[in-house]
Amino acid sequence: MKAVKRYFPIFVMPTLIAFLIAFAVPFCLGLFLSFTEFRTVTDARFVGLENYIKIFTSDETFLNSLWFTVKFAVTTVVTINLFAFLLALLLTRNIFGTRLFRTVFFMPNLIGGIVLGYIWQLIINGVLFRFNYSITSDAQFGFWGLVILMNWQMIGYMMIIYIAGLSNVSTDVLEAAKVDGAGALTTLFKVTIPSVMPSITICLFLTITNAFKLFDQNLALTAGAPGGRTRMMALDIYETFYGSTGAEGIGQAKSVIFFLLVAAVSLTQLMLTRRKEVES
């Protein structure tokens, strides 16, 4: 015990320093900068709440992108979790080649967002060109393009989490259900799903936060075209920050709001699903 105490700084310091430099300091600085007008982070001038007021009075892009992001988040959270769970159910049966399929489905997750965005842009444009359209012809194309892309990328990852959860469902309970005469659907809804609730919590958390903070894929696939109607919040913040002279503070204020929003949504979700988790 004594030894642990003595060497405490050596073991904790590297992580603590990294945490301070890479997270705590930028976070506090960012919070401070959202109340200022600045060019570079060292020459800030305090302006109070002006930046926050401007977001809602003279800048309609933020609310538009917020609405787009919410639509996107709802769609992807539902589709990704649904497909991932179904795949997980399928791949936990004793079918030939499950391991191979698990690997294949997981693989898209290993490709970076920008690359994925460009690959899907090529694929989608390749299809749409036949009908004389491109992905920027209509915001709907961009929206569904993003949904497909996210599904393709995230399903494998979520599937692995669900598989881990499913293989932990106790066979005793399943057998008991069978003996009691429960059908396949009843077993699924009354036994399996309640037992994998911890996995569902994690998957929902990951998909919701990922959907909200999506950036690379959005930038590479449509970059907001046409007319910024496929611009999500992270991209909107980026464009505000670098697009107009003197709008850095506004961009910073947007990102503070963005942080509060994502934190609120994901914490609410955690609370709600945690309540449903059961001990088996």
């Binding site: 046409p226 007319g227 697009g243 709008a247």
Partner: peptide, 22 residues
């Protein structure tokens, strides 16, 4: 020209015009 955003908005306006959305 006032800013990068101005040019960007003109660009997306042109795209909308070309595609017949505006």
């Amino acid at each position: 020209f006032p800013s990068e955003n101005f040019k960007k908005e003109v660009g997306s306006g042109l795209l909308d015009y070309v595609q017949g959305q505006a």
